[in-house]
Design a protein around this nucleic acid. Structure first.
Lengths: 347, 347
DNA sequence: CGAGGGTGCTAGAACGTTCTAGTAGCTGAA
DNA sequence: TTCAGCTACTAGAACGTTCTAGCACCCTCG
């Protein structure tokens, strides 16, 4: 039977309540709760017991209010984006050992990025980690003027003071995919792109460059796509109608590739027999046995770790404020191709 | 060019800074910022201008600390569950007009429900909304003793004081699906279930009851499934091997149904020609043109609205603390069948 | 025996708000 | 004139923590 929370007057118990029960000062209770040094072993135990007895729980807001440092990292993410979920998971894991807490703020239908960032600022976060932000660079610059900001998976043309970037080498990923396909014997390789989505431009460029390098410039074919299954499917329908049909397709991401696959299957086009398909992200989707998608993997755990690392470094290491190494404003993580069952030699 | 945030000493501006600049007291600035009455029009404008000038932004923590009411709703959700994303979206939308803020806490790989709930409590939420909680009833009861708790999409065998439930009538949903299929002429209808997932037991029961009611008891066939594509796929492989093959399948949810569909397509079994498939949830997935899944829709917006409504009612309406209508501890929302392209008459 | 340096603890002032109880000035009625 | 009742405003005390001093004690060393 769990003990009754037992605040005498129905209010939530405070430091003072614990102090009174243990017969010590509030300051000492604070010391014990923070696991700071400066309390004797016996007293420490007595205080902890008292806290347990009355069901005391430190008030995070009051704590943050008082301490100069809030040790709070604000994370803005897209509620409907599975890849962001992976990143957030990694961020939780990375922030904890560094002694930071996470405040989440979602970007959703009726809730834009502006709004999401506002609430994080109001919550007194020390730094912001933005996942795939779509806001204009000027807006990011404005934020970066107020506190350290790390942008994940969104590339920026030029450095912005106070803003750092962590991203995957998207062009390199596209290159790996093309190399793989060419290695299998493919020549007519199409790309279903991601439009204006973060990373799309780089992947497009990487595809083009790689094709040219293999002397396949005349086979370059970019179809407008997007980040959802729907958009992949509609692009795939276009591909089926095209003559000659490509023998391989590189899709913008895994969801897009799934849409492509689905249309192919329904039309009796076998994969990889008739056409090979490559995705991007290595999300859970791709790993499912029945999809078994060859894809370019983004290392979400690594991206998360780097993002948190950068934010923390900016906060802790005051020295950097002066040295500010201009070259080190972005981390570019290498992608790695994961070969599964949707690619093979052309017939 | 946006104005410089311009805190003279590099710290974030406070009420006092605004007050000094506008030549009034901090209390008056507070009044203006809260849009409370008690300030003249001219002064109000002057204060607002001063606030804009120095880039003042109210400190949410300090505000919550002082005011007795925090007007903060804690929401615990599964980071990897798309349906929860829909619910959170609805919750944001419902909380705003009621004048409540949302604090998110994710359940993820290294972060259990216990942990997620702890941080919400520490953040001083006034009430908790738990999305599909898996914690044992005893744990929920313990939470409910401390503050109002609403459980969404998790049914409870018996009422727990302080805990309310908002859920879909899962059994009714399964019934609708079976009725639809029987109406089309199907008799041999299998069910790929969700194991111990929230709602799975009810859907199983609804399926069994409906089959019996149609005199199809001998055709009842429940295959162990789960909430992911993977599990749906593996159940589907089992179905293909079975003799006689069923002419229709009701899957636990849309993801599961997608897995079933995929295996069928790969094996040359046409849908709905050879076999009809029905999902559950009406998630984004089901609506995609190329999947076009007949499914039992859960009204996430409505569930969200009800959950927030209950939480708010508990907080605002003190009278209820006494009247406590025992009959009204749960809201059951009717599902509605959405007929799309994966169901048809059996051959 | 006194100086120096730990420990273990406490009083009281922050932190940035909101809230309570005012005060001052004006208007209008008795 | 006086007083009641408004409106516009302010001083100062909360809120629940952490932080800065500093006190009292016990060692150890010269």
């Amino acid at each position: 039977m769990p003990e009754t929370p037992a605040a005498p007057d129905g209010k939530r118990p405070t430091l003072a309540d614990v102090a009174a029960r243990a017969g010590v000062s509030t300051a000492l209770v604070s010391i014990v709760m923070r696991e700071a040094k400066g309390a004797g072993a016996a007293t420490r135990e007595r205080v902890l017991q008292a806290a347990r007895d009355i069901g005391y729980r430190p008030d995070a807001r009051a704590r943050l209010l008082r301490s100069q440092r809030s040790r709070l990292l604000g994370v803005q993410f897209g509620l409907q984006q599975p890849f962001h979920a992976d990143l957030v998971e990694g961020i939780y894991a990375a922030a904890e050992p560094a002694g930071y807490q996470i405040a989440l703020s979602a970007v959703a239908a009726g809730r834009g990025e502006q709004r999401a960032a506002e609430t994080l600022l109001a919550d007194r976060c020390e730094a912001l980690v933005l996942l795939g932000p779509q806001a204009p660079a000027a807006r990011l610059a404005e934020l970066a003027r107020q506190l350290p900001v790390v942008s994940v998976a969104r590339r920026l043309r030029s450095p912005i003071p106070g803003l750092e970037v962590v991203r995957t080498a998207d062009d390199e990923g596209a290159r790996q995919a093309v190399d793989h396909l060419v290695g299998l014997g493919h020549r007519d390789i199409a790309h279903v792109d991601g439009g204006r989505a973060p990373g799309a431009a780089d992947r497009r460029r990487g595809y083009r460059t790689a094709m040219n390098r293999h002397g396949l410039g005349e086979h370059i074919r970019v179809l407008p796509g997007g980040l959802t299954e729907e958009e992949g499917a509609s692009a795939a329908r276009g591909l089926l109608a095209a003559r000659p049909r490509p023998t391989a397709v590189l899709a913008f991401n895994d969801r897009c590739a799934t849409g492509v696959l689905d249309v192919f299957l329904r039309s009796g086009v076998t994969v990889p027999g008739d056409i090979s398909v490559v995705g991007f992200d290595d999300s859970h989707l791709a790993r499912l046995a029945h999809i078994d998608l060859t894809t370019v993997g983004q290392d979400s755990a690594r991206l998360a770790r780097l993002a948190v690392g950068r934010a923390v470094a900016r906060l802790e290491d005051v020295a950097r404020l002066e040295g500010e190494d201009a070259a080190a404003w972005e981390d570019v993580v290498a992608p790695r191709l994961v070969v599964r069952g949707t690619t093979g030699a052309p017939r």
